[in-house]
């Protein structure tokens, strides 16, 4: 019995410790960001490896998500004679939920894991300590540009995802299934609101970008410096990012669209 309680205590101390380290680490990153604007090359380099490299998969998966939505909605709603609403339902579900959430989860799997593995390996091979020896702060030089690139990339990728998916839905429901083109766009414009739907979706993806980038770099920096530790850190990145994105999405949806 005592053992169980002791294990519980150890586990919670461990998680509180990680949480605290995470927040201190975040503060260190944020203080490093202003200096970063003097060296935009670092950001461009990371935007390339984090953002541009994820672009293809985001565009392709967006296209297919939109096409599946169009197909399913058209066939189901035709039974109720409501196939005119395919455009608006596709667009609403994409800009409010699917775009930000799926992009963040894809991002965690693609770029988040690569960030964690890269930073974890740098730590394992003591490159980070080497930088400290040369009086270069690794958090400012290595971590901050990666964090910022992730933070910028997620909202941009989410916008691309939604836009491409809406085109995919258009392709299926209009070009293949014969819905009228002006009905598709017209119903969409009637229902989708710029402030309520699109801007709230962008706010969501900004929050997801922050969380995804933070978790990815923290897990890498906090990894146990062995090959097993790095592999575990990579798994934790995906699990923690996906869970926090889904949880935060529910909270933000309740706050934004709850009334």
């Amino acid at each position: 019995m005592m053992n169980v309680i002791r294990i519980l205590g150890r586990k919670s101390l461990h998680s509180f410790g990680r949480l605290g380290r995470g927040f201190i680490f975040l503060l260190q990153i944020l203080t490093g960001i202003p200096q970063l604007f003097k060296r935009p090359r670092l950001i461009v380099q990371q935007l390339y490896s984090v953002g541009v490299m994820s672009m293809t998969i985001i565009v392709v998966s967006g296209l297919f998500t939109g096409m599946v939505l169009g197909l399913q909605l058209f066939n189901t709603m035709q039974d109720f004679g409501a196939e005119q609403s395919v455009g608006s339902v596709t667009a609403l579900s994409l800009v409010r939920e699917l775009g930000p959430v799926l992009t963040a989860i894809f991002f965690a799997g693609l770029a988040g894991t690569s960030l964690t593995a890269e930073i974890g390996l740098m730590k394992t091979t003591e490159q980070l300590s080497g930088m400290e020896m040369m009086a270069v702060d690794p958090v400012h030089r290595v971590i901050a540009p990666r964090f910022l690139a992730g933070f910028i990339s997620v909202p941009v990728l989410a916008l691309m995802f939604s836009a491409v998916a809406i085109q995919g839905g258009y392709f299926v429901s209009v070009s293949l299934l014969g819905l009228d083109s002006s009905v598709y766009w017209g119903q969409m414009q009637n229902i989708v609101d710029w402030d309520d739907d699109i801007l709230n979706g962008v706010i969501k993806s900004v929050v997801f970008g922050f969380v995804a980038a933070w978790i990815a770099v923290f897990e890498g920096y906090d990894a146990v410096p062995t090959s097993e530790g790095v592999s575990r850190a990579t798994i934790r990145t995906v699990v923690h990012t996906s869970l926090s994105v889904l949880g935060l999405d529910f909270i933000m949806t309740a706050l934004m669209f709850g009334d």
Binding site: V156, L159, M160, A163, W185, Q189, V192, D197, V202
Partner: peptide, 11 residues
């Protein structure tokens, strides 16, 4: 993408 969402998708 943002421009498309603004002009074609929303009001």
């Amino acid at each position: 993408a943002l421009l498309m969402l603004a002009l074609k998708v929303s009001n």
